[in-house]
C-alpha cells in the first residue's frame, strides 16, 4: 500500500514537469539521446530520494536533480565545457548598431538563436534556458544551480551580452 502511494504521489507531483526536465537536459547535452537518458536517470534518482522532497517546489526540486545528473555527465564526456566563466562585457557598445526591433523580428531565426545559445558555456546556457524558456525566478535558478542569487544575476547578464555579440556577428556574416 505504502509503496503504491509513494508511486502515485510521485507521479502526480513530478511527472508533470517532464517537459521542463527534458528541455534543460536537451540544452545541456545538446542532443536528443543523451537528453532522454539524463531525464530517465534523473526520474529514477528523484523517485529513490522522493522521501527527501519537502513538497514545496516540485519543479525546482526535479530540475536540480536533472541539472546535477547532466553536469556529472558533462564532466565525464565533455570536460572542457564546464568552468569557463569568462568576463563578458555587459555594457552596451555604442558603435554596434544592433537595431533590436527590426533584426530580432526579421533576421534572427530559431536556428541562429539555437546555435548561439548552444555556443554559451553550460552555466550561462542553463541560466538563459531556465529564465527565458522555463520562466524560473532568480531564486529558483539559484536553488537549481546551487549558487547565490547574485551569481544568477551576473551569469544572466553575461550570457545575454554574449548572445547579443554572437548574434550581431552572425548577422554581419549574413549581410
Amino acid at each position: 500500500m505504502g509503496e503504491k502511494d509513494k508511486l502515485t504521489r510521485f507521479e502526480e507531483a513530478i511527472l508533470p514537469h517532464m517537459d521542463a526536465a527534458y528541455n534543460i537536459a536537451r540544452w545541456l547535452t545538446r542532443n536528443e539521446r543523451d537528453a532522454e537518458d539524463m531525464v530517465q536517470e534523473s526520474y529514477l534518482r528523484a523517485f529513490k530520494f522522493f522521501d527527501a522532497f519537502t513538497g514545496v517546489n516540485a519543479r525546482a526540486w526535479l530540475l536540480t536533480i536533472v541539472r546535477n545528473t547532466c553536469y556529472t555527465w558533462l564532466q565525464q564526456n565533455r570536460g572542457r565545457e564546464l568552468m569557463t566563466e569568462f568576463d563578458e562585457k555587459i555594457h552596451s557598445e555604442q558603435n554596434e548598431a544592433w537595431d533590436p526591433a527590426a533584426q530580432a523580428a526579421k533576421e534572427i531565426d530559431g536556428r541562429m538563436l539555437t546555435q548561439a545559445i548552444e555556443a554559451l558555456p553550460a552555466e550561462y546556457r542553463e541560466a538563459v534556458v531556465l529564465r527565458d524558456l522555463e520562466g524560473l525566478s532568480y531564486k529558483e535558478i539559484a536553488e537549481v544551480a546551487a549558487v547565490p542569487v547574485g551569481t544568477v544575476m551576473s551569469r544572466l547578464a553575461r550570457a545575454r551580452a554574449r548572445l547579443k555579440r554572437l548574434l550581431t556577428e552572425r548577422l554581419k556574416e549574413k549581410a
Partner: peptide, 30 residues
C-alpha cells in the same frame, strides 16, 4: 536590446518537449 533578445529567445519555439515514448519509458521504469 535585452528585451528584444528575451522576446526572440522566448518566442522562437526553442523549448524542447519530452517525446511521448520517453514518458512511457519513464512511467514503466518507475
Amino acid at each position: 536590446e535585452r528585451r528584444a533578445l528575451q522576446r526572440a529567445v522566448g518566442g522562437s519555439g526553442l523549448r524542447y518537449k519530452a517525446p511521448a515514448e520517453l514518458q512511457q519509458k519513464i512511467r514503466f521504469a518507475l
